[in-house]
């Protein structure tokens, strides 16, 4: 199998993993939206945006999970995944560094993870998104070169 083929298959695998993560966390939040909102209300710095965040985050997660499966929008969805995970990771790091109380706003089995494990999980998925972006771009460049040669 060519390197291009492996990259394409790995990008699909990363899309599956990101879809699993986003759909799982979005459905967990939407099933108990009031609990999620309550938890966000207790989070430092973002409490006043709790209502907006509790609707926007699961909505964004579902949209990104959907876009990952349209070839045309996959790169955009990978960028969005990277930004969403990155924002959350930066927020956790700031809270861990500067806030005294750090209540968890996570849902489902992810709530069993500690904050540091949560950061590691997020960074791992960010790496997958980043690799997906790089390989999608490479694939796009190769396709464009082939088109211009023909």
């Amino acid at each position: 199998m060519s390197i291009k083929g492996i990259h394409s298959k790995l990008t699909t695998l990363f899309s599956i993993l990101l879809t699993l993560l986003f759909v799982y966390t979005a459905v967990s939040k939407l099933m108990h939206l009031d609990t999620f909102q309550l938890r966000v209300e207790r989070m430092p710095y973002i409490a006043s945006y709790a209502t907006l965040i509790s609707w926007a985050v699961p909505f964004l997660e579902l949209v990104i999970a959907g876009l990952l499966w349209f070839t045309r929008y996959r790169t955009l969805a990978l960028y969005a995944s990277f930004v969403l995970l990155g924002s959350f990771t930066i927020y956790i790091i700031i809270v861990l560094k500067y806030s005294e109380s750090i209540p968890c706003s996570c849902g489902g089995v992810i709530s069993a993870l500690g904050w540091k494990d949560h950061i590691l999980l997020n960074i791992s998925f960010m790496v997958l998104a980043l690799l997906g972006i790089l390989w999608s771009k490479k694939q796009y460049n190769i396709q464009e070169t082939q088109k211009s040669v023909q």
Binding site: L20, V23, V27, M31, H32, T35, G107, V109, S111
Partner: peptide, 16 residues
């Protein structure tokens, strides 16, 4: 992937 994620979300509902 979507069905699996929804299934796991419902299976782990109790922790929420």
């Amino acid at each position: 992937a979507i069905l699996l994620a929804v299934g796991i979300a419902f299976a782990t509902e109790e922790s929420n």
